[in-house]
């Protein structure tokens, strides 16, 4: 299987603290992957490196068929290349309507002058409406996203990610603060998305990870501790040590 993203030998430290330590990771073009690990394992920093927010001290991050290096690209270029990211806390533009949020995320030219003269066609609107249906917000298109509930904001953010049509989705704790029904819905959305693209889910909640039913990577102290199915990794002695302590 070809790889979409390949991270190899990446390290980064903040003021002497090694947040990521010689981390290697790769994912194929259509794959669902969960990343778990205790607090401080470097999950968020890993996402920061892939999305260009943090520059690593050493290592390579290669992308796509041409093996382009993501380290030389700005955050916006990386996003344009097809890496979408969902933050831990839902971050949508609360001041703007659901429609505007989705329209902003829609895959279109990102250049300021093109954006200036951009006026949505009816296909664009239909696409937004379709997305809204997918995330269950079709009835709320004209509402300000600030008025939505926490779970709806999470979906809206996932919807915005889908609108970006990324080839890789990085999702940080999507289920946090959701009701059971909302979780099920979220699982569906993610599984559906992973049929056409790579999806990386960072999650604490084992139950949610189990529901995703996918390959799991366990991070600990900035490097990969174990990889495999959830059942496989939960039987790993190192993982048990890390999670339960000695």
């Amino acid at each position: 299987m070809s790889t979409l993203l390949e991270v190899s030998g990446v390290s980064v430290s903040f003021d002497g603290f090694r947040a990521i330590n010689n981390l290697s990771f790769s994912i194929g073009p259509t794959e669902l992957r969960a990343i778990i690990g205790p607090n401080g394992a470097g999950k968020t920093t890993f996402m920061d490196i892939v999305t260009g927010k943090t520059k690593p001290d050493e290592g390579r991050v290669l992308w796509g068929d041409e093996n382009a290096s993501l380290l030389r690209m700005s955050e916006s270029r990386i996003a344009q290349a097809g890496v979408g990211r969902k933050f831990q806390r839902p971050t949508v533009f609360e001041d703007q309507s659901v429609f505007d949020n989705l329209m902003m995320a829609l895959k279109k030219p990102r250049n300021p002058f093109k954006v200036l003269v951009f006026r949505p066609t009816s296909e664009d609107e239909d696409r937004v409406v379709a997305l809204a249906e997918e995330i269950g917000l079709a009835a709320h298109l004209s509402r300000k996203s600030g008025e939505l509930s926490h779970g709806q904001k999470q979906w809206l953010e996932i919807g915005m990610l889908l609108a970006q049509e990324p080839r890789l989705l990085l999702v940080d704790e999507p289920a946090a603060g959701m009701t059971l029904a909302e979780r099920e819905h979220t699982t569906e959305i993610l599984k559906e998305a992973a049929k056409t693209r790579a999806v990386v889910v960072v999650e604490h909640d084992m139950e949610f990870v189990r529901r995703l039913d996918c390959k799991v990577t366990v991070l600990h102290e900035g490097s990969v501790l174990a990889e495999g199915s959830l059942d496989h990794v939960t039987k790993n002695k190192d993982v048990i040590d890390v999670y339960l302590g000695r």
């Binding site: 999305t51 533009f93 951009f118």
Partner: peptide, 27 residues
């Protein structure tokens, strides 16, 4: 238009706009 949407987004959460793929500096 959409530019207004983007710049208000920059005002409210610059990093988020950047992760949507917009070159914030250019805007």
């Amino acid at each position: 238009g959409k530019l207004g949407s983007v710049i208000r987004g920059i005002r409210d959460d610059e990093a988020r706009v950047r992760f949507l793929g917009y070159p914030v500096e250019g805007f």
